[in-house]
């Protein structure tokens, strides 16, 4: 597996930011009331993540180590501002429903975490693919949570009514939405359920011998490890907003 595909696989499956690393929980829990919100949030984060990973990787030899975090923040914040204006201009309804969580992408710990643990130490192309992988992993996670919450909580998927609703006044039988799933507690329930499910799938795969391929760079110990999750200098969770 070459470096780029390895990065994509790492972001989507092995270190999925939502279900494995448990990063960026604030937007994960707050905006996933519907599939489209989850997808929108995931994709906008992906765009920022790819661009910031690229730029930070380009600048990695210029940014002095002692002020790297402010430098990363400036880069990330610039891209977030661009994304914010673009969304406000072209997808105003999505912009309205995501609200404050768009500017908050600046302090999203996935982005800072990848900048700190990957992009600032690795070449540009690999960093871009790391951003794509992590971003898509985040998008998949958010969309999955959004889909489950939307189906159970309102009987819809991507805004289309798939389960006909019950109408008591008209005596029509149908689905009664379990509203708690589109409220705050539902986010925790669905996140926990999906995480348990993916752990189960992974365990089953491991039992059958289809062990998830190890990253090549882990062969020679932690010193050369390229992912921050195992104990790099700064553990990414420290950057949660």
């Amino acid at each position: 597996m070459n470096g780029c595909t390895e990065r994509l696989y790492n972001g989507l499956v092995k270190e999925n930011p939502t279900f494995v690393l448990m990063l960026g929980m604030c937007p994960t829990l707050a905006v996933t009331t519907s599939a489209i919100n989850g997808l929108g949030m995931g994709l906008s984060t992906t765009v920022v993540l790819v661009l910031s990973n690229m730029l930070i990787s380009m600048l990695r030899k210029i940014i002095p180590d002692s002020v790297r975090v402010p430098a990363f923040i400036v880069v990330v914040a610039s891209f977030v501002t661009i994304v914010q204006f673009l969304m406000e201009g072209f997808v105003p309804s999505l912009y309205a429903s995501l609200g404050i969580y768009i500017p908050l992408i600046v302090v999203n710990c996935i982005i800072l975490g990848r900048a700190e643990s990957y992009a600032s130490k690795n070449p540009v192309v690999l960093s871009i693919f790391d951003g794509i992988g992590m971003g898509l992993g985040f998008t998949v996670g958010l969309t999955a949570i959004g889909i489950v919450r939307e189906i159970i909580g309102s009987g819809k998927i991507f805004g289309a009514q798939i389960l006909p609703l019950a109408d008591e006044a008209a005596g029509k039988a149908g689905y009664t939405p379990i509203t708690i799933f589109i409220l705050a507690p539902g986010a925790f329930l669905v996140l926990a359920g999906l995480t348990a499910l993916q752990n189960k799938v992974k365990n089953n795969m491991a039992k059958k011998g289809k062990k998830a391929p190890e990253s090549a760079s882990c062969a020679d110990g932690c010193a050369s490890c390229t992912n921050g999750a195992c104990g790099g200098k700064v553990f990414p969770t420290g950057n949660e907003e």
Partner: peptide, 8 residues
């Protein structure tokens, strides 16, 4: 409380 929030 789960039911109360879901089916007020």
């Amino acid at each position: 409380c789960f039911l109360l929030i879901s089916f007020t």
